[in-house]
Amino acid sequence: MSLANSQSFFARCLRSRSFVVGGVITAFLLLCALVSLFWTPGEAFVITVKDRFKGPSLEHWLGTDQFGRDVASMLMTGTQNSITVGVVAVSIGLFAGVALGLYASAKRGWTEELIMRFSDFSFAFPAILSAIMITAILGPGGVNSIIAIGIYNIPVFARLTRGSANAIWTREYVMASRASGKGKFRITVEHILPNILSIIIVQATIQFALAILAEAALSYLGLGTQPPDPSWGRMLNEAQTLMFLQPMQAVYPGAAIALAVFGLNLLGDGLRDVLDPRLSRKR
C-alpha cells in the first residue's frame, strides 16, 4: 500500500460515520480493559459487607453490590473478560474456519462436499444450544465457554471463506496463474487469501460481538465465567435475584454488554463500507 493509498484509506474511514462511532466505542472499551489492569476506581474483588448497597457517590460511581464491591470497578474489570472471550473465541473460529474453507475451495470435489455438509449440519445446533452442550461436557467455566463459542464459530467462517474463495478461483488472473503452473497452495496464499481478507475481517468483527453476547448468556445461565472473576453476564445473573430491591444493579451490566456489541457491530458495518469495493462503487 502506497502512502497516497493509505491516506485515502484513512480518509474513507473517517468519512464513514459507523466506522468512527464504532471505532470510538471499541477503543473506549479497550482502554477500560487496559486501565483496569492497573487501576480501578474502587474494589472489584474485595468483599466488604458493611459497604453493601451503597448508592452512587464520588467514592462509588455506580454504587456497590450486595457484597459491597464497587460496581463501576467490576464493570471495568468485566471488559477484560469480554474482550478476552471475543479475541480467543473468534481466533479459534477464524483460524480453523478459514483454513478449512480455503482447503475446501482449493480441493473441491468430495473434500469440499464433506466440509460443507459438516458445517451445514452444525447449523442444526444453534449457538447457545451447542455452547450449553459443550460446557456440559467440559464443565462450566470461563475457559470452557470460550472454547464452546470458538468451536461454534468454525463453520461460520468455513462457509464464508469457501463461498468467497470459490468466487475468486474463477477470476481470470487466478486462471492465468494456474495456467502458468503455480501450485494451489501458492495461489491460495498469493491471490485467494488477500482478496477475501476484507470480507473475513468484517465477519470477524460481527462474530466478536456475537461472542460477547454468547459469553454473557452462558455466564448469565451460570455456565460461563465463575466467581470471583467479574463478568457482565454473571453480574446480571446476581443482580436478578435482587431485581426488586436494587433494579439499577441489573441495568448496568446489560448496558455494558449492549454498548460493546453496539460498538462492534457499528465498527463491522463501517469496515464493510470502507473495505468492500462493491458498495463504494458508484451506481
Binding site: 454473557a216 448468556a217 446480571l236 441495568v251
Partner: peptide, 13 residues
C-alpha cells in the same frame, strides 16, 4: 445489540 436476557429483565422491571 441488546442481549435478550437483559431486555427481559428490563421488561420485568
Amino acid at each position: 445489540s441488546i442481549p435478550n436476557f437483559w431486555l427481559a429483565v428490563l421488561l420485568v422491571l
